[in-house]
Design a protein around this nucleic acid. Structure first.
Lengths: 192, 192
DNA sequence: CGATTCTTTGAAAACAGTCAATCTGTGTGG
DNA sequence: CCACACAGATTGACTGTTTTCAAAGAATCG
């Protein structure tokens, strides 16, 4: 399963064998069954986590017990809670697997060591941070400016494959609409 | 006006005089009148900008000509468009002054130089990035999970002073509701 | 299969948006 | 200094969208 991670890394930055060995030396692999937690609210998150297979969701549960999904992470993307990781505070989020998944974990200290020793790795991670920053801004814009149907259409444009992997009620949760509204929106769109 | 910036920086990190001199050597000051643009859609943004006085808004204009405010920046906070700055692509945003404002500008290359030469400065900026990341996630949660009234209440808790500086229709734009709805929400809240 | 989870549908209610008019305060030019 | 214009806030009536609740149909999984 490190293969996926190696391809992901070496596609973007050039690494000597010894450098890649350094990375692998701090990687550990965790397999998750569908529905299994990677992180639960209240725990402190201490890793950087790369999804090499499967799909995770990060969500919060509000006072009424309703789940609100903040993020999906499919293969070749990162998961975890940066806020808990940075401050070593209990997490406000839950992360669990939507599909059977394989995760590569790198402990915080090891990750920082990699960033220090491998400048290109550091730059790369920095870049990813920026890009997810931009994506979050687009999501805020969508949330404050679009109707339910428009939000769904935009999501399909951005992540066309999402419908085949994520059940509708989770997409609805991510968009901030009810499953019923999503169902009706889909029906509307099908008519054309 | 560099005073405000100096206090902001030295409150967080210890700097030798020579280091502060290095910072000031790359700072330039821009004064903005109310309504004046700092950045217009289509321009490439090439600075890091610190607000030492006043208040700015960053917003997008949709196809129907409606403005959607992504961010307010008051004194002691940063402004600009990181996406345009990072990729040197035309900006999708407009930034203008809500009040007469004073901005400190640091050119991209100079800012990178500071980060390289002053590790504590680099760490500090990194930290700010993380914190605004977390704040954005909270805003997404609010946008997808709260009613108009709850959004407004939460905004008041997070930024109590905002009402005295930002006109209501801009707060409404930021929250993704109409000015009329905000007015009614306020009326409701006043009744208790 | 049988049980559970997920999706769809319907009807009613709550919520927020639209449009138009009025009211308020502010600042500007005469 | 006043009068007027203008931007912003408020209000009412109405429309439209979304949620809620309840139930029935699919689909999926052990």
């Amino acid at each position: 399963m490190l293969e996926v991670f190696k391809k992901y890394i070496t596609d973007k930055i050039a690494l000597a064998d010894a450098e890649w060995d350094l990375i692998t030396s701090v990687c550990s692999i965790r397999k998750l069954r569908k529905h299994q937690y990677l992180l639960q609210e209240g725990d402190v998150w201490r890793y950087n986590a790369f999804v090499s297979e499967g799909c995770l969701r990060r969500y919060r549960v509000d006072a009424a017990g309703v789940e609100h999904i903040i993020q999906f992470s499919v293969e070749n993307w990162w998961a975890g809670d940066r806020e808990s990781l940075t401050n070593l505070t209990p997490s406000k989020y839950n992360i669990d697997a939507i599909e059977d998944s394989t995760i590569i974990l790198i402990r915080k200290e090891d990750f920082e060591m990699l960033c220090k020793k491998l400048p290109s790795f550091n730059d790369f991670m920095h870049n990813i941070l920026f890009r997810s920053f931009d994506a979050m801004q687009d999501r805020i814009l969508a949330a404050i400016s679009l109707t339910a149907g428009e939000k769904y259409k935009k999501l399909l444009e951005t992540y066309p494959s999402i419908t085949s992997r994520v059940p509708g009620h989770m997409i609805a949760s991510y968009l901030g609409i009810t499953p019923e509204t999503l169902s009706r929106v889909r029906k509307q769109m099908a008519k054309k």
